[in-house]
Design a protein around this nucleic acid. Sequence first.
DNA 1: TCTAGCACTCTGTGTTCCCGAGTGCCAAGT
DNA 2: ACTTGGCACTCGGGAACACAGAGTGCTAGA
Lengths: 337, 337
Amino acid sequence: MLDDRKLAVLRAIVEDYVSTNEPVGSKALAERHNLKVSPATVRNDMAALEEEGYITQPHTSAGRVPTDKGYRLFVDRLSQIKPLSGAERRAIETFLVGAVDLDDVVTRTVRLLAQLTRQVAVVQYPTLTRSTVRHVELVPLTDRRVMLVLITNTGRVEQRVIELPEVVEDTRIAHLRAVLNACLDGCGLTTVPELVADLPERLPVEDRPAVATILSVLLETLVERHDEKIVFAGAANLAGADFSTGLRDVLEALEEQVVLMRLLGETSSDTPSALTVRIGSENPYLHGTSIVATGYGSGDNQLARLGVLGPTRMDYPVTMGAVRAVARYVSQILAAS
Amino acid sequence: MLDDRKLAVLRAIVEDYVSTNEPVGSKALAERHNLKVSPATVRNDMAALEEEGYITQPHTSAGRVPTDKGYRLFVDRLSQIKPLSGAERRAIETFLVGAVDLDDVVTRTVRLLAQLTRQVAVVQYPTLTRSTVRHVELVPLTDRRVMLVLITNTGRVEQRVIELPEVVEDTRIAHLRAVLNACLDGCGLTTVPELVADLPERLPVEDRPAVATILSVLLETLVERHDEKIVFAGAANLAGADFSTGLRDVLEALEEQVVLMRLLGETSSDTPSALTVRIGSENPYLHGTSIVATGYGSGDNQLARLGVLGPTRMDYPVTMGAVRAVARYVSQILAAS
DNA sequence: TCTAGCACTCTGTGTTCCCGAGTGCCAAGT
DNA sequence: ACTTGGCACTCGGGAACACAGAGTGCTAGA
């Protein structure tokens, strides 16, 4: 059905269209790529490719443009991920080195990725799910208020101000802190609920109301942040490219955490570290845009996802290379800290 | 030079142009607003206004459009800030109530403001300068690493991982923590440097290298965050409006902290709580856009600034009302917590 | 199976034309 | 001294039209 030459033609069409942004005709194709056949032959192949739904023509007398299906075939079988240049590698290193905390790592990463791909970069904050408790802190503020600070092994810090139901002395707070840390230090966040379940019973009865309040806030913090924060950068790169779906829709999606989450997520959960490419109408919500994403995190402990979003007409090999490289570097940085 | 009627004409021109986005002609003007004069008279006034530079015409046979100078006069003398409707007030309250921490307050505020004004909202994080230390925490991670956590009275939390030059026992860390808190608790951040200056000398000599390291990181944290974080929301609202300066430039400015800072800031520092309106070419960097901003924070303790950014052709009375109202509510929330 | 030739079909562009909104100015009216 | 109606003028933008050029599909021949 699709012999080698037809595939070569498809590849050429995708490459030309991506670089010129204009429908590509048979003549130009036969010249620029050294297929050693005439335009007429190319035309026949194009007719076949169109028949199969890999390409289409905007109007009767125009060149051909790849369809989503065409891009899909191109990504799956006709292209290979392009590794970064040395200069780009160095840029990544200098950019990420010197990040002072997790916030900083995420911010730098998303900007870096946007700059590298000249598209919109999206980075999900590392999820709490797989991380462990490094320290729990209870800071007395007044005699009725304490601040709960939760520090995880990924460097994330969560804090909450808690109104206590009754006055609690500082020494008791200090005791409770010690108990909590003894109980939770180093434990996975998902196991926290069971670990603290019997805690009130092991403490003096007069402390129980306060403990209950504190624990409920602690648990709430865990669940609440379970749906994660996502940041993006490079919106300016949208200005040039035109989307079939309005620019407005894209910008709205970017600011809508939930939508963004679904765009990034929805991965084949068996291999989270693999590159996911979602092309055009394969996406929920935003048709007309493509997404290249991957998980990051050290080794088998995948923390979250990052990726870029751009027009369907994007340079997939280069973009995939950049996303993969950045994910690796960030994983490395996070593992080291 | 400018009698009352001419001013009324200018006001009418601004209002019509803002609502229709089309150059407004003498006939339509005389009809829609009940100036009780004929189009011809209006034309004479328009000629005078144009002479003075308050309005201009895109081409010879078109209606008039306000100039930056015209908007300036309108804002300063011809309009009054429009208070919010009851529904809008309630929206603000329900939106801001239930924010769990400072991050959350800022995030909700910026979204609220964007939604309310249908433009791009910008909020600067409360600055550390005027705030005070509520608690300093030192958490041992390994025997060579500690985490420094700084909590301020505005609910802000800064953390840093510190590599110590030598192994330090946990008890010493605990002691140092106590010393630091005794020394700094409740003090203004700006006074921290002097307060800790003689600290190494008051401690055992063998601890001094570690203390020096920790203090340097602490001081660095203070200065570094002095230039502040800024967030924005509502970029989707840019999609409709067209800017004379390219959309791309605006998006780039939004992602460039430094530029955004200068746009928000640069206020008459004597009355930080007053509304600042910067119109078109009055802005640095982004001509063709206007900015309505104000300081927020409790009473005389102005913490930071917030505002909105939009096309020069914006509804100033409404926008100013929204900005002022949101700033007040946020100040209230922050003061209460 | 490939190639060359040919007639056909479009889009995009440049040209021309014309309508109408809006203006500026002048002379007459209050 | 201001206001008003009248009038000629200007200019942008849309409609109508022609046309060149790129690209295609098809058929016949190598």
